[in-house]
Design a binder for these strands. Structure first.
Lengths: 208, 208
DNA sequence: CCTTGCACTGAGCAAGCGCTTAGGGCTTCC
DNA sequence: GGAAGCCCTAAGCGCTTGCTCAGTGCAAGG
């Protein structure tokens, strides 16, 4: 209809190296369906149908429906953690690194908002072992952000009474983008990233 | 086990005037189950079991499982909207009213985090008409917060380049409390309310 | 041309789902 | 004491669910 989102050329790219082709189609279909209706409301028939195959074909590539979710959640968490750790390891000032972290993380959440929605809001549906594995990565994202904020405090650049609490709030703000972002709305991943980077610098009391 | 949450005397209070007693037990059981596992993963047998009755008894008080969700979502949204509108209509400075709004809204989200979780994250499971009804109330919460921020800008108290975007971010920050809040953690609804009120005043550039 | 191996399908199974129905006790009125 | 009305249960209906399995078509190797 000509109303496609402005970032279609990037969305779905995170699955480019899943092989074979049928497995890739299944993951993309599952992400779409899970993001739209949630894991429990999605049927394996729906996923297989979206991928253009019969319900039984799904089980050639994935043992269970939960394994599909685990694949999505694992890849998504690894990508998100990578973005934050790269920003934390940068060589700018703490303010520059924090702004970079928020900008790029938010940009990713918005661009890949379907994947992000599954990653952030469906982890409760994972099996016990897979859930524990994912939790470890989430602790990593927390410590990446906290280390930047702590650096800013130590350098005297930030004014933050409660580092742990502020870290939590910053991450919470970024994560929630996946819930409300609408690719057909006015805001682009770029403008939201800029806005949020600015808001977060204000939260930590960094001078502009 | 003696590890009960510190706000147990308040939690569940929002259903005090649901009658008869069996219907109230059902709502409380449904809130608990929906918050724990999500709407779609919760069975009517589970709800009835938690309420101490047979599966069939549920249908004497509610026509469908969705009607239970609608009751919860409706009451929850009305309470949340009331809190924000009361803060917006207060007679302090814009900074005082914004801090009050954030503090009391966050406090409510944390204290009633099971209800809040259902309210904020299960609205997609509502039927079409009920969903539209709830969306109208959500637009109300947005305009309540925006009006406070706009007042602050007009009065020259706030420095906000993007009022709509900042409103979105403030509400997003508060709403996400329902996702991560843990009643057995260190933070209480009061301390989170204080922290968030401070962070939001920084976001709008209000002088302390 | 035949065999092997693999992606895939049509049909369907056992289990669990939301919800219904027939009927039983209890209280409340005359 | 009997009728009426309400709250509740045991049983189960029709359907959908995640998942399985015997068998098919097809490309690769000899």
């Amino acid at each position: 209809m000509g109303t496609e989102a402005h970032e279609d050329h990037e969305a779905g790219q995170e699955w480019a190296d899943v092989s074979p082709d049928a497995a890739r189609r299944l993951v993309r279909a599952a992400v779409e369906a899970f993001a739209e209706r949630g894991y429990h409301a999605t049927t394996t028939r729906d996923i297989a149908g979206r991928a253009g195959m019969s319900p039984a074909a799904l089980y050639i590539h994935y043992k269970t429906k939960e394994e599909l979710l685990y694949q999505i959640s694992g890849v998504g968490h690894r990508l998100a953690l990578g973005i934050l750790e790269q920003a934390a390891a940068g060589d700018g000032t703490p303010a520059e690194r924090l702004a970079d972290a928020v900008r790029s993380f938010v940009h990713w959440q918005a661009t890949h908002h379907t994947t992000a929605r599954v990653v952030q809001y469906e982890l409760g549906a994972l099996g016990e072992e897979h859930y524990a594995e994912v939790l470890a990565m989430r602790r990593g994202t927390d410590s990446a952000v906290r280390s930047i904020i702590q650096d800013g405090v130590d350098a005297g650049d930030f004014d933050v009474p409660d580092v742990a609490g502020t870290t939590l709030a910053v991450l919470s703000l970024c994560i929630d983008v996946a819930r409300w972002f609408n690719p057909n709305g006015r805001r682009t991943p770029e403008t939201i990233g800029e806005l949020y980077a600015d808001l977060v610098l204000r939260m930590v009391g960094a001078v502009r």
